[in-house]
């Protein structure tokens, strides 16, 4: 059966070659040259960075309120030291980040009182993606009434230390600053109504019970982080 399949495949490939002469005539060169203003450097590969079990890299970043925040100064909704941090790399401009925006707000409203505040970090370089400037971040946070910190990775030094490659991308960090879960908020980033499995919420519940999150790492399509 396998043998037959291979020959069949081969024959199809052959037939395609045999016909290429015909196809050529139809093909008109259409040089629609794309003018790209600021060429974006994008990264879809995980290189250096942290995974589950690693220490979460420290940062001190400016929030949309103008103040600097780090793990040491971030509090939960009750003004206490958090039991964990929901670090989410996200931005204004990515359609999947926008599709996740309400979910991120809801996450904070649900978990910040339980000790797990959302810490959103915007990693894109505004020189490449003007819609993600600090001014635009402030505006978006104001419009939507973000209840969580929305920090600007100015100079883009923090996201590479995490190894983040896309927006939105989550790192769930526990009290000891160990990464316990990375990846997607849930199994349907594009469309909140189709969510079946809430990966991140399940991970938080697992930590609360003293268990290891399962799965501890997930993937999702997202917008590559834009660096100059």
């Amino acid at each position: 059966m396998k043998h037959l399949h291979l020959i069949f495949t081969f024959a199809l490939a052959l037939s395609a070659f045999a016909c290429n002469g015909n196809a050529g005539a139809e093909q008109q060169s259409n040089a629609a040259s794309e003018k790209s203003e600021a060429p974006a450097q994008t990264v879809a590969l995980k290189h250096d960075g942290v995974g589950v079990g690693d220490k979460a890299p420290a940062f001190s970043l400016k929030n949309v309120d103008g103040k600097e925040y780090s793990f040491e100064t971030i509090k939960d909704a009750n003004g206490n030291d958090p039991k964990g941090y929901i670090v989410i790399f996200t931005c204004n401009t990515c359609p999947y980040a926008v599709a996740s925006e309400q979910r991120i707000i809801d996450l904070h409203n649900k978990y910040a009182p339980m000790g797990y505040p959302v810490v959103a970090i915007q990693p894109n370089d505004p020189a490449v993606q003007p819609g993600d400037s600090f001014a635009a971040m402030k505006e978006r946070a104001g419009e939507m009434g973000y209840p969580f910190l929305y920090l600007f990775d100015e100079g883009q030094e923090v996201y590479p230390r995490y190894g983040a490659t896309r927006t939105p991308e989550v790192y769930l960090v526990d009290k000891s600053l160990t990464v316990r879960y990375t990846g997607a908020i849930d199994d349907s980033v594009r469309d909140a109504e189709s969510v079946k499995e809430k990966f991140l919420e399940n991970a938080i519940e697992a930590i609360e019970k003293g268990e290891e999150p399962k799965p501890a790492a997930t993937k999702a399509v997202g917008c590559s982080i834009k660096a100059a």
Partner: peptide, 21 residues
């Protein structure tokens, strides 16, 4: 198919899901 976690690794385990790829 929007259940990306189910299939990204089936294309390439090197792919984090960021696009372009």
């Amino acid at each position: 198919d929007g259940r990306y976690n189910d299939w990204i690794d089936k294309v390439s385990t090197e792919w984090t899901g960021a696009i372009p790829a």
